[in-house]
Every structure is written in structure tokens, then in C-alpha cells.
Design a protein around this nucleic acid. Structure first.
Length: 125
RNA sequence: AAAGCAGAUCACUUUAUCGCGGCCUUUGGGCCGAGGAAAGUCCGGACACCGUAGCGCAGUAUAGCGGGUAACGCCCGUCUGUCGUAAGAUAAGGACUAGUGCAACAGAAAGUAUGUACAGGUAAUGCUGUAGUGAAAUCAGGUAAACUCUAUACGGUGCAACGCCACGUAAACCAGCUUUUGAGGGUUGCGCGCCCAAUGUUGGAGGGUAGGCGGUUUGAUCCCGAUAGUAAUAUCGGGACUAGAUAAAUGAUAAGGAUAUUCGUCUCGGCGAGGAAACAGAAUCCGGCUUAUGAUCUGCUUUUUUU
């Protein structure tokens, strides 16, 4: 499959995000946390994902943008891990650290989280 | 050379691979894609809506003089004061013969004044002069980053404005007409003024879901030149199209190249090696101000040295 992360694969609906936070489960590998929820999309898309960085920890927009870009880039490169799910899922990656991370660290953490997700949700069934 | 003053410019770049947001497409792809402050949201507008937006009071802002501008609390010129050896910087720089208040030290006394010494004068009296204190002492003066007065400006709310479409119904919405009452309520802080109600009926379609589209990027625009002006700026001519996202697009990796600069070397200019980059991310759009910050260059001033 292509290693893309286009508009259709991004989580955009406000309602969907509210549901995700109120009912979703989470996997944590400090400093990154994944919140996910089994759901239904009209489009033929397996997973919709979003990223979020707290304004409380990073006051400046430049650093928030930078971290969000790193999160998106790592997800894009490693989403092949979760590509063959049977259900549709909504994802949200949260960065809960307090300092600017290195790209290599972010990527390895994301990889770990995605593998854990596969163990919990796919292989258990 | 050192110390300082003022101003201008730039904000590393190229290629490859993978990727993101627009627009176009002959579906192969092509083109475009953050800043000088995009920031703080402190001023001024444009634009939009609200006729309960009117009038008066109050309130707020500005303050030499002249000019510029769509407008300004901004900019330019200039005078004066202050600071600095100077280049320059800086100013809440209108008014205290409208009123009220305030005032260190000195002094008898600083506004319901009049003590001492000497001299003069009177029927009599600080009635007059001099000495003395002080910036100022009897038809006084200072102070308005004191109240105040004067002049000028100011309706309110902000693109989550506002318009259209979709979904969709409970009579809570709007408009007209009818009858009765002005109690009560509304408004910009207050007053005046103005507006509203309920019943029945006719017509229209609201609220909510930050759902979609428009607003939304061609504009007091940018670049070059000429003319007018000391300048800010204006006019004319030619050229350019330059982000439009909305849980919010500019990234990741690799390889070079250049500059500041560091080290080594010597034949003092090369060679070799290493090797940065700050502050910071558009959200309706402009003009300013303020704050943050890495360099480079130009002009000027003072001091010292050399010729």
C-alpha cells in the first residue's frame, strides 16, 4: 500500500472526536498516548487519525506545530502495522511530554503503540 | 584603533526520495504554498449587522506650530525646553488677569499677613520707605504626569459579523389588521425621548445542529521609472498576480555547496580540517505602534596614534 496520509484519513468531525474522548480506550507509552474507539465511517476507510498537543505544555504555536508534524509523519510511515483491521477505528495521538522530542524517539514510540494495539484488538479475536 | 550615534538590507541555498494543502488538467502530470515581526491585540480604518443608533449630561482619548494620510494616539518638517563633549536622543511642550486646591528650606509673616531696627509722616493708626528671608512679600508669583477650563474626535457589536442552502418540527419566532389598558418591562452610566404588551385572525417562516457554500482573498496591493515637494507623501506611465487552511496545509530523511566563525600551517596570502544560525507559524483584510531576535553593510561623532 501507499504510504500516504491524505484528507480522508484525518479525523475531522467534532462529534466523532467528542465520542472518542468520552468512550475511547487508550494505550500509553510515555510521552505518547493513543486514544482509540471502534466506530463507523461512511467512506471506505479503515482508520481515521488525528493528533493533538496540549497548549498547557507548549505555549508557542511553533513548537506545537512541530510536534504535531512529527506525530503525523511517524504515523504515516508506520500505519502499515494496523492496516489489516477488520473493523473501523478512530485514532487520536496525544503528546503529553513537556519538552521537544527527537524524531527518532517519536517514531519508535509510535511503532510500539501500534504493535500493542494490534495485539490487543486484532489478534485477541 | 577604541567607544558611541543613526539608518538600510537579508532572514542560508540546491538536488534526490517519501509526504501535506489549494488551483488547473488532455488523469501522464503541471503550477503555487508563512513572517519581519505572521506575535502582543495597544491605536486607527475598510467591511458587515443592529433604527431602542436621536438629544442633553457624564465619560474616554489627544494637546507648541505647519504639513501628510482613508484615518490615527502614526509619519514628516520645524521652534522651544531637558540630557549628552559631540553625532544625536527625548518631551502628558494649550490655559493658573474663571474658580478651587497645594507648596520643602529660609523668614515675624506665603493670603483671614505686618514683628523688629532705623528714617519719614499724621490728630491717630504698618500710614510710607529702607534693612533682613526667599524664586516670589500686598494692584503679587509658581504648580494643570492637582481638580478644572478650552479645542478636537468618539453610537454599539465584531468575520464565531453577515447572506444563502440542507436536515427538520414542539407554536416558544416575525409582519399586517382588530379591540382595550398605559400597570409593568426594555435601552449606553444617568435624564429626556423612543419602543414593547394581551385576544382573535391572515400570511411568512424561525430555534437548534459552530453541517455545507459564499464572505475569503485584486488590494488605501507589490515592483520599476518619471514629475512635484526639504521630507512624509501625491500624481502619471509600464509591468506583476503573490497562501487561503478550518482538530487547521510548508514536514521527514540523505547528499552536496556558500557565508560568519574556530583550529592547524607557513612563503601572510592561500591551503587543509571542523562547522553554526536566532526570534518565531497566516486564520476577514489593510495602515501604524510596541515587544522578541540572528547577522551584514553604510554614513556620522568623540578621543588617541601615525603621516
Amino acid at each position: 500500500m501507499r504510504v500516504t496520509f491524505g484528507k480522508k484519513e484525518k479525523l475531522k468531525k467534532k462529534k466523532e472526536i467528542e465520542l472518542l474522548f468520552s468512550e475511547g480506550k487508550s494505550i500509553s507509552k510515555y510521552p505518547i498516548r493513543l486514544v482509540y474507539r471502534k466506530t463507523f465511517f461512511e467512506e471506505n476507510i479503515k482508520i481515521k487519525a488525528g493528533v493533538s498537543v496540549s497548549k498547557r505544555n507548549f505555549k508557542k504555536a511553533v513548537t506545537r506545530n512541530r510536534i504535531k508534524r512529527l506525530l503525523r509523519e511517524s504515523y504515516r510511515k508506520n500505519k502499515y502495522i494496523v492496516a489489516n483491521t477488520t473493523h473501523q477505528f478512530a485514532f487520536m495521538f496525544l503528546y503529553s511530554g513537556k519538552e521537544m522530542p527527537e524524531y527518532s524517539v517519536v517514531e519508535s514510540k509510535i511503532k510500539g503503540i501500534l504493535q500493542k494495539f494490534v495485539e490487543q484488538e486484532i489478534e485477541s479475536k
